[in-house]
Amino acid sequence: MSNLIKPIDYKPLLDMKQTEQGIKTIKEFFQMNLSTELRLRRVTAPLFVMKGLGINDDLNGVERPVSFPIKDLGDATAEVVHSLAKWKRLTLAEYKVEPGHGVYADMNAIRADEELDNLHSLYVDQWDWEMVMKEGQRNLEFLKNIVRRIYSAILRTEYLVCESYFEIKPFLPEEIHFVHSEDLLAMYPDKTAKEREDLICKKYGAVFLIGIGGELADGKPHDGRSPDYDDWTTGTAPGYRGLNGDILIWYPVLGRSVELSSMGIRVNPKALLYQLQITGKTEREKLYFHKRLLAGELPESIGGGIGQSRLCLILLHKAHLGEIQSSIWPDEMRKECRKYGMTLI
């Protein structure tokens, strides 16, 4: 409850019926634009995967996946996905997707260890996407190009929402600003990582923060990243590392920055081995996903996840994810939210 933001004088601009219609409009329009922009084909995604194959996303390495035994498989354990980061790369190989094309899926996950607040729920819904890279695209400029194209799809969706509901006014900047996490630390050395994100996003409106997962000059990573999907150790320039990052925007309704997407160029065999070594996870080399990657059976790719409920929240100018999605919230949070104009579904 201490993390709950209670915006003063908050009033939802749309009623519940309009909100549901707006959610449908945003989801249908954005995924069509994302698919067209990046040449992505929709694929059907799993809700759960088998434990012990190395396919589930480990996030920061401490979150516990929801698991259950399967009767017809001798009580073998399945895990509800955290995301589809590694599953998508296997799918690219299975579908023999050609370079310059990719896949996307509706990802639904349960993250039982989330600390619940305005932006974090037990239920996570994302557009998970993955694209096969062409030769010569393993570089920072290609990553930036993809970020700009995704941000363009977000801007087009914002325009549609504002045309559909006169109460909603646009607030996103025309362009997204790029900054490396190392430079951000140098700009605000006495601030926490979250405070640095807020300051840079308030200044530029929309930011892609490069290089998340590796240690910075202060000996700490900007934020945690699993060692086996994003490449966060390959150098992009002398003294800089990371071919991944987050799309962040400044959100006036809550007076803070909001992460809309985590994405990056994926590990190749060399980066995987190095990142497993420096994180003390070398035992993963024996897992199904990792063995296939190290054997050269998976394509070079770039991919990420884009929060569906979060995108709807910011484009409909809502103050709490519970106004967008149906989930479980503490009774005390529901009461507090009601007092401040946030009606949770």
Rank of each mutant, 00 (worst) to 15 (best):
126 Q>M: 06
123 Y>A: 11
180 H>L: 02
201 C>A: 15
136 G>Y: 03
167 E>P: 01
196 R>C: 02
153 A>T: 14
127 W>Q: 04
110 I>N: 09
139 N>Q: 04
78 A>C: 12
148 R>G: 00
204 Y>F: 15
201 C>M: 09
151 Y>K: 11
162 C>T: 13
181 S>Y: 00
114 E>S: 07
83 S>D: 06
182 E>T: 10
214 G>D: 12
142 F>V: 10
202 K>P: 02
121 S>E: 06
214 G>Q: 13
218 D>P: 05
216 L>R: 10
89 R>K: 14
192 T>I: 10
135 E>P: 01
119 L>C: 10
175 E>S: 13
86 K>E: 10
100 G>P: 08
176 I>L: 08
107 M>H: 01
171 F>G: 08
182 E>F: 01
159 Y>S: 13
117 D>F: 07
190 D>P: 01
189 P>A: 12
95 Y>C: 11
132 V>A: 13
129 W>Y: 15
187 M>V: 04
132 V>N: 05
207 V>I: 15
132 V>L: 03
165 Y>L: 06
99 P>L: 11
169 K>D: 08
217 A>E: 13
130 E>G: 05
81 V>P: 08
140 L>V: 12
102 G>L: 06
165 Y>I: 01
78 A>Q: 04
91 T>S: 13
115 E>D: 15
186 A>T: 07
172 L>R: 04
102 G>V: 11
131 M>L: 14
162 C>A: 08
199 L>R: 13
76 A>S: 14
82 H>A: 13
128 D>A: 11
147 V>H: 06
185 L>V: 02
211 G>T: 02
106 D>W: 15
209 L>G: 01
213 G>E: 00
127 W>P: 01
179 V>C: 12
204 Y>Q: 10
110 I>W: 14
80 V>E: 02
96 K>I: 04
210 I>H: 01
163 E>C: 12
114 E>Y: 06
214 G>M: 09
214 G>P: 03
91 T>A: 15
104 Y>D: 08
93 A>D: 09
77 T>C: 05
205 G>V: 03
158 E>S: 06
208 F>M: 11
125 D>K: 10
187 M>Q: 15
80 V>N: 04
141 E>V: 04
